[in-house]
């Protein structure tokens, strides 16, 4: 089972990286969304997979009697999902605002922070 999921995670990463290597901010944005899914799946799979047994202790017991899914990666991934959504929302608004202000969606033309030729710094003291 882990083999199939490793392949799937590989595909997720490949697609995310391919999108991130683009020059267009929309594609980069889509890439980050997929990258966060890729990472979540990676962590989830690394904690081993168990089918259909959620990590919940039955009502009448103090300790689960059968093998349950590993709860730790679930807890890690759960917060990661919410945080990556917050980041995605932030990037989305940033993209949108950058497009409004700079009038371009091409990262090659977004040169406010690192201008094309800003000349030598002042030579005086």
């Amino acid at each position: 089972m882990e083999t199939a999921f490793s392949a799937l995670v590989g595909i997720f990463f490949a697609v995310a990286v391919y999108l991130l290597l683009s020059k267009h901010i929309i594609r980069i944005l889509l890439g980050t969304a997929i990258l966060s899914n890729a990472v979540n799946l990676l962590i989830f799979t690394a904690g081993r997979l168990t089918r259909e047994v959620p990590p919940i202790i039955p009502d009448h017991l103090a300790v689960p009697e059968e093998t349950i899914a590993n709860p730790l990666p679930q807890a890690l991934v759960l917060t990661a999902i919410v945080i990556s959504f917050s980041l995605f929302a932030f990037l989305l608004v940033l993209t949108y605002r950058a497009y409004q202000e700079l009038g371009t969606d091409d990262t090659e033309e977004m040169r406010v922070a690192e201008p094309v030729d800003d000349g030598l710094p002042p030579m005086g003291y």
């Binding site: 882990e2 083999t3 490793s6 990463f13 490949a14 990286v17 391919y18």
Partner: peptide, 20 residues
């Protein structure tokens, strides 16, 4: 870009397979 992306994907896939 596709070659780099594929390399990254294969790398992560092998890494995860090795871990599991």
């Amino acid at each position: 870009d596709a070659v780099i992306a594929a390399a990254c994907g294969i790398g992560f896939g092998l890494f995860l397979l090795r871990v599991t």
